[in-house]
């Protein structure tokens, strides 16, 4: 698996952490005050608390349970219960390759040399969860690869699909800057209603 879209940058402003997920891997996606993005395992090594419930303080992500702070490399550099202690190097959170391009936060769970998907100048519109596997969503558009799906439609929309579970995915939708965002957004909701079999 290569680059997967996990969020739109506008949904993760500086100083914010959110939960995300790629298949079996729970992620904490966070942004430093100066705008650098990180994708980490969503688990504090101390007591297993989800780091996505934590808080950004300076250039660190802190766990909400005991306030342990992790620097941008994922290494623990402060334990509030023991302020004078220098935490051992062994206390660290698994980190993943993460970058921002075109208003989308991309993550690769493995090291990768591959290029980021081409977005053709389209701009992010919104992210929408869909109760359908990523592959089923791709199949609906006749695509083999779910990473990005270019849809030939009235709206010239591109969907970056994030596989979440066996029956749920997140659709990150991009459209040309000249398209009306509200129209594209409604089209996406109608699409979801159709795919999930709900009356729209």
């Amino acid at each position: 698996m290569n680059w997967v879209a996990v969020a739109l940058t506008e949904d993760v402003p500086p100083g914010v952490v959110i939960p995300s997920r790629i298949e079996d891997t729970d992620l904490a996606i966070w942004c430093t005050p100066s705008g650098r993005y990180h994708a980490w395992s969503d688990r504090c090594p101390h007591r297993g608390m989800r780091l996505s419930h934590g808080f950004v303080r300076g250039d660190t992500l802190a766990c909400i349970y005991h306030g342990w702070q992790y620097n941008e490399e994922g290494a623990c550099d402060y334990i509030p219960a023991h302020p004078k202690l220098t935490p051992p190097d062994t206390i660290c959170v698994p980190t993943y390759t993460c970058t921002e391009a075109g208003g989308v936060i991309w993550v690769s769970l493995n090291k990768t040399d591959s290029a980021l998907p081409a977005l053709g100048g389209r701009k992010p519109v919104r992210s929408l969860p869909i109760n359908l596997s990523a592959n089923d969503l791709a199949a609906h558009f006749g695509a083999e690869d779910y990473t990005t799906i270019a849809v030939v439609s009235d709206h010239d929309v591109l969907i970056a699909v994030q596989p979440c579970t066996d029956n749920a995915c997140m659709a990150h939708v991009l459209a040309s800057p000249d398209k009306d965002r509200t129209t594209v957004s409604r089209w996406l909701e109608d699409l979801r209603a159709t795919l999930e079999g709900m009356p729209s």
Binding site: P45, H46, R47, G48, M49, H53, I64, Y65, A81, H82
Partner: peptide, 24 residues
């Protein structure tokens, strides 16, 4: 409860290695 329902795994690991304790 907001903590307890968000610890992974839900079960308590008894073997050392999976979680890192300190003196506290």
């Amino acid at each position: 409860r907001s903590i307890l329902e968000n610890q992974l795994p839900r079960k308590l690991p008894l073997d050392p290695g999976m979680e890192v304790p300190t003196q506290a």
